[in-house]
């Protein structure tokens, strides 16, 4: 819970966190090393100095650190795990469903554990998805389209294989599809970051919600375009929000574009923990006001009401969370959050 200076409470859901294992012991190859190093460069370049981690800690951190950074220090009432496989790069994979589940069991009502699938796993993967739904009761999945499988360097959601998986999600009631577009999708001569395939999927599956992580960056312009067309397309703010420290004006431009082209009900806060800690992101986000010239030009509203929607209410709606009822449940939680 975040409390403003005037005493107003903001219910926070961090819609993008991870517990990963990028350690040397878990790395299979140079790709494993380069993947986590790239994450670390994001962390190093945009975090305020007092929030910088040593590389060693960044490679692998324990559940207690996560709970402390996200829930206790980080104001989040709840957080959503968004795991990825990366089995070509890491022996035991990068994310771990069971490790996430264990944290969620220990701290009841705090965490939502999403899953993942890869359409290139064919029929076997479809059966697996059913089993996983039964075992973990997934409400959502995180898809990383640039993951490598054998010789394949990625996939698009418009491929028939992917369509079958989305059909299965619809059948099973896995409603929230979080997508992270990555760089290496075949055919390699096309723009791998292009979000047009999400447009396709969103219009074919109107009952599913498509949350485009990083608001489509590096293709923000294309993302805005599809979000105006498809009402079941949402934007996850992770990565974009990290401009708040070094380049607040750029953040102002991004958020005002999003509010202009889509609306305040379809933007979700996410820290992308452990790349960035939610504490500073949330503090800066709540305090932030649009510069006057940008406000004048776009005429959008970015007040506390809008901030509350982005920080929690919008994600709550997607995940069927009744905020007032949830607050009641959390009153009994052993974790007392920082500002509560």
């Amino acid at each position: 819970m975040y409390k403003t200076a005037s005493g107003e409470e903001i219910f926070v859901i961090d819609a993008h966190i991870a517990l990963w294992d990028g350690s040397k012991e878990n790395q299979l190859n140079i790709q494993g090393d380069q993947f986590i190093s790239c994450f670390y460069d994001y962390h190093k370049n945009l975090s305020p100095e007092e929030y910088l981690w040593e590389k060693e800690k960044f490679l692998k951190y324990d559940p207690e650190t996560l709970v402390n950074d996200v829930i206790v220090k980080g104001y989040a009432d709840m957080a959503i795990f968004q795991p990825v496989y990366l089995r070509e790069f890491y022996k035991n994979g990068f994310g771990d469903f069971d490790a996430n589940e264990a944290i969620a069991k220990q701290y009841q009502n705090r965490f939502i554990c999403n899953g993942t699938f890869d359409p290139r796993h064919g029929n076997r993967g479809l059966e697996e998805l059913e089993k996983m739904k039964e075992k973990y009761n997934w409400q959502g999945v995180k898809l990383y389209t640039a993951d490598w499988v054998g010789d394949s360097k990625g996939y698009k959601l418009s491929e028939p294989g992917a369509q079958r998986y989305l059909e299965k999600c619809q059948q099973l009631g896995i409603k929230n599809i979080h997508i992270h577009k990555g760089p290496t999708v075949t055919p390699l001569n096309r723009d791998a970051f292009d979000v047009a395939d999400i447009d396709d999927a969103a219009s074919s599956f109107p009952e599913l919600n498509f949350i485009v992580e990083h608001v489509g960056l590096p293709r923000l312009e294309d993302f805005c375009w599809i979000a105006t067309q498809e009402k079941n397309v949402y934007g996850g703010l992770a990565v974009a929000i990290s401009f708040l420290h070094t380049r607040p004006r750029y953040f102002a431009e991004i958020i005002s574009e999003l509010l202009y082209w889509m609306d305040e009900d379809r933007i979700l806060f996410g820290s992308d923990y452990a790349i960035w800690e939610p504490k500073w992101l949330i503090e800066k986000f709540v305090d932030f006001e649009l510069p006057e010239d940008i406000q004048q030009e776009t005429r959008v509203t970015f007040d506390l009401n809008v901030k509350k929607k982005i920080l929690g209410e919008n994600a709550a709606r997607l995940y069927n969370i009744d905020i007032e009822a949830q607050k009641e449940k959390l009153n009994k939680c052993q974790l007392v959050s920082h500002n509560a």
Binding site: Y42, C224, W261
Partner: peptide
């Protein structure tokens, strides 16, 4: 403008990642 901004953000990100790397 949407296109211009997008290219500018990417430019800042890329430069930042190059510096960190």
């Amino acid at each position: 403008k949407r296109t211009r901004l997008s290219m500018e953000f990417n430019g800042i990100y890329c430069r930042g990642l190059l510096e960190a790397r």
